[in-house]
Computed example of a mutant assay.
Amino acid sequence: MKNSYSSEMFNMSNNLLKEIIHYIAAPLTYSINLCLIEGVFPDALKLSKVTPVFKKALGKVFEGIIYQQMYEYLELNDMLSASQFAYRKGRSVIHAIELLVTDILVAFEDHAQTQETGGEFRKSSVKHTRGSTWSAAGI
């Protein structure tokens, strides 16, 4: 048996059982042999104690609740940039590309310049950042 302080229905852990095995070995052996001879397993030993511990799931619940509250607060107080597309409902990378293409086409038609800057953040570090200046003369 693995070392464990987790207890079962009778509040006995593996560690406790290992400590007292010398005292209970004879009656335990007799009981086990009697079960095998008679073909009967005691009903009291058919019970189990199940205690679910959802550590990771609980963390996800907290994360979801905090995210929702912060998102609603930022949206309600108009604190998110109009060009923020990631992690926002109703916005996607497609919307960002449409905005980029529209800005470039308008600048091209107006014979003007436009500066587009994009960034992608993953795992708290900058993966890619690029700035470009477009002009009608350059196309």
Results as ranks from 00 to 15, higher is better:
1 M>H: 03
2 K>N: 09
3 N>G: 01
3 N>I: 08
5 Y>Q: 14
7 S>E: 15
8 E>W: 00
8 E>F: 00
10 F>H: 11
11 N>Q: 13
11 N>K: 10
11 N>G: 02
12 M>I: 15
14 N>A: 15
14 N>T: 07
14 N>V: 06
17 L>C: 08
18 K>N: 11
19 E>K: 11
20 I>W: 02
22 H>G: 08
22 H>P: 00
23 Y>W: 03
24 I>H: 01
24 I>M: 08
24 I>C: 09
27 P>H: 08
28 L>E: 00
28 L>S: 11
28 L>D: 06
28 L>M: 14
29 T>D: 09
30 Y>T: 12
30 Y>W: 02
31 S>G: 09
31 S>R: 07
32 I>F: 08
32 I>V: 15
32 I>Y: 07
33 N>C: 10
34 L>W: 02
34 L>C: 02
35 C>E: 06
35 C>K: 07
35 C>S: 15
37 I>R: 15
37 I>N: 07
38 E>T: 14
38 E>R: 12
38 E>S: 11
40 V>Y: 06
41 F>V: 04
43 D>W: 00
45 L>I: 02
45 L>R: 03
47 L>V: 05
48 S>R: 14
49 K>P: 00
50 V>C: 03
50 V>G: 05
50 V>S: 11
51 T>M: 10
53 V>H: 11
55 K>H: 06
55 K>E: 06
55 K>C: 09
55 K>P: 00
55 K>S: 06
58 L>N: 13
59 G>M: 13
61 V>F: 04
61 V>Q: 10
63 E>W: 05
63 E>Y: 05
68 Q>V: 04
74 L>I: 07
75 E>A: 03
75 E>F: 06
77 N>F: 12
79 M>D: 03
81 S>H: 08
82 A>W: 01
82 A>F: 04
84 Q>D: 08
89 K>P: 04
90 G>P: 03
92 S>E: 07
93 V>C: 04
95 H>M: 05
97 I>T: 11
98 E>Y: 07
99 L>E: 12
99 L>M: 11
100 L>I: 12
100 L>K: 09
101 V>R: 13
101 V>I: 13
102 T>S: 13
104 I>H: 07
104 I>Y: 01
105 L>D: 10
106 V>F: 07
106 V>R: 12
109 E>V: 03
110 D>L: 15
111 H>R: 14
111 H>N: 15
111 H>L: 14
112 A>G: 00
114 T>S: 10
115 Q>A: 10
115 Q>N: 08
118 G>Y: 12
121 F>E: 11
122 R>G: 01
124 S>A: 13
124 S>G: 02
125 S>D: 02
126 V>G: 02
126 V>S: 10
128 H>P: 00
129 T>D: 04
130 R>E: 12
132 S>I: 14
132 S>H: 09
133 T>I: 15
134 W>S: 02
135 S>Q: 06
135 S>I: 06
136 A>E: 05
136 A>G: 05
138 G>L: 15
139 I>K: 13
139 I>H: 08
